[in-house]
Design a binder for these strands. Structure first.
Lengths: 256, 256
DNA sequence: CGGCCAGTTGACTCGCATCAATGTATGTGG
DNA sequence: CCACATACATTGATGCGAGTCAACTGGCCG
């Protein structure tokens, strides 16, 4: 792994020059290791840093007054955890690990410096935020208007699509290290019902799950059942990048 | 209204100089009017522009295969609709009006220019995106893990808090021009059940709704019932602004 | 006047929660 | 190597919250 995860992630949006890669690399220094089951921060903790994910899986969550829990994001390598708290002094959610992980803290004020030094990266970070919104949006639809079967199917397809972007895997078989009670908390279902639902999905020969692994048996039919369209995970920055090029050839002070 | 809505909105984050106000004002030119019940765009339409809201209410939505609908955001004056599509070529949701409105289109490539001309505005736009994420997050919690009573109560308090930020109103009485079927679509409930739930809330003397108007009878108890904490709507940019000041006094090329 | 839309109310249904029992794998200390 | 505890998953029985269908009301408008 010569290039950091975050550089590989950002490269999927646009070509980066050496200075930009260096800036991004500087966000992924001095990794800290945490064991599976560890808590990185709790809701309300002071939010001074972001974390880039180098290795492993994490999730963010919120505990409710009645003790139940809502899981809000799943983070995989290349993601940045905490971007949301750019505008807040305290953490809006907790963050905990699903596997052993390596993550790298950088102070959120560093962001401001990046904005000052690279117009391209300003745009890309904004694009990342937009993409995160799109994912949340899709999950809202999922929670609001779908059956348990669709929720589970949709979630699996979302993770499948996100993982394929960076890691290609054959035969639609991949690791998904979320126990069923975490899946339930992500989808607004009970762990019991998640178990039943996987049963149904296997019965229908769409999908099967064993331990931490998923095999998708029929992607097309699964997508149809789930009402899954992958458009919200396929960004298109071409118009933005074109605007950047045009701008680059204008005299520095011109406003257009 | 001598200053545009968007300037007033952004001023709640930080002081702006004349150039920055001018840049923002330039995003709110040539307003277009739409009648209540109008559609601004549909899911899948080409996404070339953002819209700033000058007057009136709008909502974004997604239709499902089975004909049901999920409402995703409510927009009020000062908001910007479409920021999410910065990274996408097509609209992720539809956008329609709840009242007569005036909105102003600006091309999304204009964003790139703004990033290039004002470091403060770069930061503020990123903060706005972060805040939007926080709102979506809270709504996820709301949809995933709450009862109908809590959902309705929470939604009302969210709107109440957002509106109070710019418009102060006495006696906890305000306009909320969403018919019950739209509320239902926002909260993942049927219109019928929304009606029943408002009945319950009135019975409990927490809240009453008449036509397009809400009166909150007991804010504290309502917030308790809803599990509502307003922290997610109270941004704190102090650390970011401090970073900007420090940066301003450094020599231009220094990276720290 | 009649049609339409928003809201209310009641009867019935159903999806998923909850509770409980059981099974299986993994880990720990004596 | 066994006794025990813990985490995760599966399965069945039962109940409740909210959806659905339908009838009815009142206001608005042509």
């Amino acid at each position: 792994m010569d290039k950091s995860c975050i550089v590989r992630h950002f490269r999927t949006y646009a070509e980066l020059d050496a200075h930009e890669e260096e800036l991004l690399d500087s966000l992924e220094k001095s990794p800290q290791a945490f064991r599976r089951g560890g808590v990185i921060w709790e809701e309300g903790d002071e939010a001074t840093d972001f974390y880039t994910i180098r290795r492993g899986w994490l999730f963010s969550y919120r505990y409710m007054e009645d003790g139940s829990r809502q899981v809000l994001d799943i983070f995989v390598p290349g993601d940045i955890a905490g971007l949301r708290e750019f505008a807040f002094s305290g953490r809006l959610t907790g963050l905990a690990t699903l596997t052993d992980v390596e993550i790298c803290a950088f102070p959120k004020t560093r962001m401001t410096e990046v904005f000052g030094e690279s117009l391209l990266l300003s745009n890309l970070f904004f694009a990342v935020a937009a993409r995160e919104q799109a994912v949340l949006l899709e999950r809202l639809v999922n929670l609001g208007r779908r059956t348990a079967l669709q929720k589970v199917a949709h979630f699996v397809l979302e993770m499948y699509t996100r993982l394929q972007r960076t890691n290609n895997f054959p035969d639609n078989h991949f690791r998904l290290p979320l126990p069923q009670h975490v899946l339930g908390d992500a989808l607004g279902l009970s762990a019991v019902h998640v178990s039943r639902t996987f049963g149904e999905l296997k019965e229908a020969e769409l999908l099967c799950r064993d331990g931490g692994h998923i095999s998708i048996l029929d992607v097309d039919r699964l997508a149809q059942v789930a009402g899954f369209k992958s458009t919200y995970l396929r960004e298109d920055l071409s118009s933005v990048l074109r605007a950047l090029e045009n701008r680059a050839v204008l005299p520095p002070g011109s406003t257009g």
